[in-house]
Design a protein around this nucleic acid. Sequence first.
DNA 1: CGCGTATCTGATACCCCGTCAGGTACCGGC
DNA 2: GCCGGTACCTGACGGGGTATCAGATACGCG
Lengths: 182, 182
Amino acid sequence: MDATGVLLETVAYRDLKVVDIAREAGTSPATFYQYFPDVEAAMLAMAADLGEAWHDDLSKLITNRDWEGDPDGSAHRVADGMLEFWTRHKSVLRVLDMASMEGDLRFRGIRTNLLAGATEALMGLAARRDTPGDPRASAGVVVGMLAHVANHQHGLERWGVSHDLLVETVAGIIRRTILGVA
Amino acid sequence: MDATGVLLETVAYRDLKVVDIAREAGTSPATFYQYFPDVEAAMLAMAADLGEAWHDDLSKLITNRDWEGDPDGSAHRVADGMLEFWTRHKSVLRVLDMASMEGDLRFRGIRTNLLAGATEALMGLAARRDTPGDPRASAGVVVGMLAHVANHQHGLERWGVSHDLLVETVAGIIRRTILGVA
DNA sequence: CGCGTATCTGATACCCCGTCAGGTACCGGC
DNA sequence: GCCGGTACCTGACGGGGTATCAGATACGCG
């Protein structure tokens, strides 16, 4: 799995071969097949691990905030934290995202669970503050936006939107959509 | 390219083989290679076609609106139109998205160009109305959000967010982020 | 030392990739 | 009707990745 992660940093998922993973891990392809039936299974395991490890942290990122006293700073902290998390694990999250889009139910389950912590925290926040609009839909869309922006961060920067400006903009949307504060 | 499109509806990009495309097109693999050096090149061509065909339509979707008289309805119309467009071409757009995430500059160029019409239209709208926040960043993030929501529409529906509610929520974010109307 | 268990790997059948030389169809000039 | 040109298609093949299995190797334990 480590070797898979390393290769995924530089190689497109489509071109990720068992032979290369085995070579990177200093072993033979046959050994790989003792642990996983195919590359997809290895990715599934990596995604599951990531979900396990971060489910709680992501929800804490939202709940451990003083939303009443400092809504603006809190929104910033959340935006920044999510972007940072996504950047750190982008290669795995990319595959997770793509497989979910393609309708793979196992990956989608992991993705839903990984984001559930964050989404439910935002949902509760929106409900408690009586923000107009459906809390579930708002939270889901906001989390999705965060994921997408994180994935295309590099593209947006090339297009002339700096990291700070991005955080600023995303924080604004969180504030207005979840907290209902202009 | 038609055969590729058909297969992409049911098969993951990772598992899209030249043999299958050739079979679907009722020809031999060697024929495929007369037109494209590999599967990626075929996808590139399909994405480019899509960009060509929709660049203008997507910007018209935004500019052909009575934003002053009916901001709410206009935002709805835009949200719905983008989601519909994405749904119609989801298989190609999925690949476009993924390749862009993975840093492929050719795909990213096409994606930027495809979205440029819509993004610039929103940018102009935000600038004209003196909406707080950077117009470029706001427009970029909003368009990204639309793309992401469209890609994960099915997942959100499974999670309990109906299509109508999604359009409603997204329209709200457009209204507040671009128009500055609560 | 000897046995059981766990782990690894060389060898292999199969499939897909990408290329080339050589076919086939069509067309315009004679 | 023949003929040469052009465009397009394909069978055949070397190269390489996939997935499997039988057999080798390492290790723990009485």
